[in-house]
Design a protein around this nucleic acid. Structure first.
Length: 936
RNA sequence: GCUUCGGUGGCGAAACUGGUAGACGCGCUGGAUUCAAAAUCCAGUUCCUUUGGGAGUGUGGGUUCGAUUCCCACCCGAAGUACCA
């Protein structure tokens, strides 16, 4: 019988579906939660890169199930998002419909690969029964503040009652900075609007003013990555800044805990490092500089207070609030010109143009707090308003940016480092210097001076130690249609949340998915988007004039709102009373292994940790990290650059022939001699620098370019569809081949040529069971060799799956089957164990043979075989005999021999004698069971 | 610039805590089978070589009886981040 994978795979996929083989529930077995990052169902469908992580997690899940675990292995869809909406704008189709179509397509593709997902737990973030809870969490955040005393989130009622009882006492510093000061009586007298305004500074989900990128032509707000060189990526239209009220999440309050939590989770170090950098903790000092002839001062933040005597200027950001107070009248015009130039530039421009030093003198001076010098105050865009205090002290001797700035504007560069030349560049090391020209710090190094100066600053009461984080609060509003509505309405301008009982607040129907003419989000196009307080439901807009009907927030939530907590919903996907029941949470607890790409390091993987900690603070969750272990699978790269031969000519065309989308035609003049498999690229036109230094290899009708291997994506025309592979070789071959490509976390190129090796391995395995088309197994006692081969494989595979070294598992299987083939092994006991062993990798294949050899139950719950040491014991070892570390020959010796006996045996060997050539060895190193090394 | 991860045959890659470098697969070469092809099977395949050997894991040093593995310096590539004071 032939290995008819198409038939077999269809049969077992159907079997699993009808028998609900992969449905899990509570059980007395130990639980294991294995999760993949859920996909965004795009119109392009899956390519062979997508399932890489899913296959690995599936193998791991099935392996653990064989080992007696109750494995939760769910899947769902991150189905809100921009592409669906853009497609809707283009074609007029409702995103709901296109999303559903895409989900169905994805499901078909996924089903063909034979995953053990429990689809009864499927979730979709765009489903109102799901996003009800996404909205619910937002409301919790809106009604919470971060208590700096207990260092955790609490209900805002606690803060209100503190204001009621003792006024601003609890947060006096913060409130004073914000310009508020009140006692309890005054608080009670404040009108609701003022109260709301004050509380807004504490809520974890809060409304604030901020700039967004607005593209008039497209009538939409654009994200930073949709703008290139100050114009829109699509169409090249100008983009301006617009101040808009929007929602933010106060994630910055969790900076320290997000940082510390990394130490207790088993996530890849590079990814943790990325999160640490992103959070960007730095310890420093804030220092006040008095402004000359003014009672105001400028507060700067520095991590190098030891260099304070090197200050020769201060710089403030162009957005600095008190800028007009500082501008002297004669400088006003120049300053205004500079500011308008800078503020006109897009943020992207400002950030990308790092090399140009620009700035303008404000006309004012500050007083150095220690030596009393007059220090000019400059304005420059190299200072960022939103970091630190928006002002820095310029120490040209110790900071390269300050140095460049001082050089350009001919500001003093006082040297404060003994015997260090700073004529060409600043000296920014923290070691290897002693201070000079620094009064009481003279002769001190970094560690000594930093301690002294911080004390001094705090004693003089001109500043204090401060910890600064780069992590900013997360903007939460999106001027989009296809996202979760923000469950807020505005009563006399005061934001009110919709009651939890009245969720979900469903996305309204609109007749146009574009933003409205005045720049409001597409929800503004809805005719029924008002909240009736009396009826507690959404109602028609024309009722807004009624006394108890109010406008609803028009923005929607960002993509990561739904994905920040989804892993809990799988535990209890249909619960209508709770986002997850206590029982479910207690049983499934947290994710044991989470598979996904590292591109989410500072997005999803950070936001979800923040959500976790927030829900933990409010005691809705009982852990403060949600995933014990994270595995980043690498990308599968495609060959992007093809050169196609134009039939009948010696002309070659690149890329564009693969797609109907017009790409710039690159015509390459090359010399190609019939019969050669390489192209000579010396003859390339000089402007084809894309293909310079490339090597091309002929494959079928196209040349593969060996230089350009990049991420698979539809826009690069380099996708390989898994369906094609399933049709040609079967899902089991696809699964094994993807694992065989290399280590899971590594990026690797896709090369279809290699797939035949894995496929013929499966055929070879299959053939062991048959003789003349019929199952033919022997029930005799297995031979010693076959048992050894089997148990060697059991040991290696079990260990390697646990380490997720799946590529080496496939190698071991191949070695084993090669050995059994040459032994002509058809022993039932051996082959049965092997079927179970390989079933996580090739589930259809094993189910089929398992049933053909007479088993009636599915193989998925069979106990994974244990290896027995006794079959692996060796009596002899082929010792490598080296001379000065170079192996010359091997020598078979019994493992029973002791040190002296080995030495004797080696020295009496003829080969040893001839290599020694009568020299006496200086030393003989013998590691029993390993090596023999003779030093001459 | 900074942070992190990599660099091993023609290619994807193995090598456990330092102990026979290149397992396994692809590709290639030769052979068997076949009218022929596919499929399958067998042998070979790091490089150089005067067939004795010699060199070899990005480069240069170091530690060691012994280094792909540990240490130092450098080169190259990928990813992330970037006037973060």
């Amino acid at each position: 019988m032939n290995y008819n994978f198409l038939e077999i795979e269809k049969k077992w996929q159907k079997f699993w579906k009808t028998n609900k083989t992969y449905k899990v529930g509570f059980s007395s077995k130990p639980k294991l939660y294995v999760l993949d990052m859920f996909p965004y169902p795009s119109g392009a469908g899956l390519h062979v890169g997508h399932p890489l992580g899913y296959i690995a997690s599936d193998i791991y899940s099935r392996f653990k199930r064989h080992n007696g675990f109750n494995v939760l292995h769910p899947q769902g869809y991150d189905s809100f998002g921009l592409p669906a909406e853009q497609y809707a704008i283009k074609t007029g189709q409702h995103p709901k419909k296109t999303t559903l179509d895409n989900i169905n397509m994805y499901r078909n593709q996924l089903d063909r690969i034979g995953f053990s997902f429990d689809w009864s737990r499927e979730i979709r973030t765009s489903d109102p029964n799901y996003y009800k809870w996404t909205q619910w969490i937002f409301i919790l955040m809106f009604n919470s503040f971060y208590c700096s005393i207990d260092n955790k989130a609490k209900n805002i009622e606690n803060l209100i009652s503190s204001f009621n009882k003792e006024g601003d006492k609890m947060y006096r510093d913060k409130l004073t900075d914000l310009g508020y000061s009140f006692n309890n009586l005054e608080w009670n007298d404040f009108n609701p609007k003022k109260k709301s305004e004050i509380l807004m500074n504490f809520r974890l989900a809060y409304l604030t003013d901020g700039e967004v990128n607005w593209c008039e032509e497209l009538g939409t707000v654009l994200a930073n990555d949709e703008i290139i060189n100050g114009v829109s990526e699509r169409g090249g239209h100008p983009v301006t800044k617009r101040k808009v009220k929007h929602w933010c999440l106060r994630i910055s309050k969790y900076s320290e805990r997000l940082l510390n939590g990394l130490d207790k989770i088993n996530w890849p170090d590079p990814l943790k490092e990325m999160q640490r950098n992103w959070i960007g903790k730095s310890k420093g000092v804030s220092i006040n500089f008095k402004i000359e002839n003014s009672n105001k001062s400028i507060e700067v933040f520095t991590t190098r207070p030891d260099t304070i005597f090197g200050v020769s200027f201060l710089t403030i950001a162009p957005e600095y609030t008190d800028i007009s107070d500082l501008s002297s009248s004669e400088n006003k015009l120049v300053i205004e010109k500079y500011l308008s130039e800078v503020l006109k530039k897009s943020e992207r421009d400002r950030l990308s143009d790092v090399k140009t030093v620009s700035g303008v003198f404000s006309g004012s001076y500050a007083i150095h707090p220690f030596n009393g010098n007059k220090v000019p105050i400059w304005i420059s865009d190299y200072v960022i308003a939103s970091y630190g205090t928006g002002a820095v002290m310029g120490v040209p001797a110790g900071d390269q940016r300050d140095f460049d700035f001082a050089k350009k504007f001919q500001i003093d560069i006082p040297n404060i480092f003994k015997n260090i030349d700073i004529s060409n560049s600043a000296f920014s090391d923290k070691t290897g210097f002693k201070l000079i020209n620094s009064e009481f710090l003279d002769g001190k190094d970094y560690n000594e001076s930093i301690e002294i100066i911080i004390n001094e600053i705090e004693n003089k009461n001109i500043g204090k130690s401060k910890i600064q984080y780069k992590l900013r609060d997360a903007t939460f509003s999106r001027q989009r249609y296809w996202g979760e509505p923000i469950p807020i309405y505005y009563k006399d301008g005061i934001p009110q949340n919709i009651d939890l009982d009245n969720l979900p607040l469903k996305l309204p129907e609109v007749d146009n998915f574009l933003p409205t003419k005045n720049g409001d989000s597409p929800l503004g196009n809805s005719k029924a988007w008002a909240w009736s307080e009396k009826d507690k439901k959404v109602t028609s807009n024309d009722k807004i004039n009624d006394i108890d009907t109010f406008p609803i927030e028009l923005n929607t939530m960002p993509g990561w709102a739904g994905s920040s907590w989804y892993f809990y919903r799988y535990m209890d996907p249909t619960n209508n009373e709770n986002f997850v029941s206590e029982d479910s949470q207690n049983y499934w607890s947290d994710i044991d292994v989470y598979f996904g790409g590292s591109e989410h390091a500072t997005g999803h993987l950070l936001y979800s940790r923040f959500y976790q900690k927030f829900l933990y603070d409010l005691k809705f969750l009982n852990k403060d990290e949600y995933a014990k272990k994270l595995v980043n699978q690498g990308m599968i790269l495609g060959n992007s650059a093809f050169v196609y031969r134009k039939s009948g000519t010696s002309e070659y065309l690149s890329k564009n022939l693969i797609s109907d989308i017009k790409v710039d035609k690159i015509r390459i003049d090359i010399k190609y001699v019939e019969g050669e498999d390489h192209l000579n690229f010396d003859l390339l036109k000089k402007d084809d620098k894309d293909f310079k230094n490339s090597k091309f290899i002929l494959e079928k009708d196209k040349f593969l370019c060996l230089r350009e291997q990049e991420k698979m994506s539809k826009s690069k025309f380099n996708v390989v569809n898994p369906d094609e592979i399933c049709n040609q070789y079967g899902a089991d071959t696809l699964r094994m081949y993807e694992m065989f490509l290399g280590p899971i976390e590594q990026s690797k190129p896709w090369d279809t040529r290699g797939i035949s090796g894995v496929h013929s391995f499966l055929k070879k395995f299959w053939n062991l069971f048959f003789k003349e088309g019929k199952i033919n197994l022997s029930s005799e006692e297995p031979s010693k060799e076959s048992l050894k081969s089997l148990h060697k494989t059991i040991k290696k595979v079990s260990e390697d799956i646990e380490k997720l070294s799946l590529n080496t598992c496939i190698s071991s299987f191949m070695i084993c089957i090669n050995e059994l083939s040459s032994l002509n092994c058809n022993n039932r006991l051996i082959l049965e164990d092997l079927l179970v062993l390989i079933s996580p990798f090739a589930p259809h294949f094993s189910e089929e043979l398992w049933s053909q050899i007479g088993n009636s139950k599915s193989i998925v719950d069979e106990k994974y075989p244990d290896y027995e040491e006794k079959y692996l014991v060796e009596s002899e070892k082929a010792y490598p005999v080296s001379f000065n570390g170079k192996t010359k020959f091997t020598l078979n010796l019994s493992l029973d021999l002791n040190h002296q006996e080995i030495e004797k045996a080696v020295l009496s060997n003829e080969k040893t004698k001839s290599i020694l050539n009568n020299n006496i060895p200086k030393k003989i190193i013998i590691v029993p069971g390993k090596i023999i090394n003779i030093v001459i």
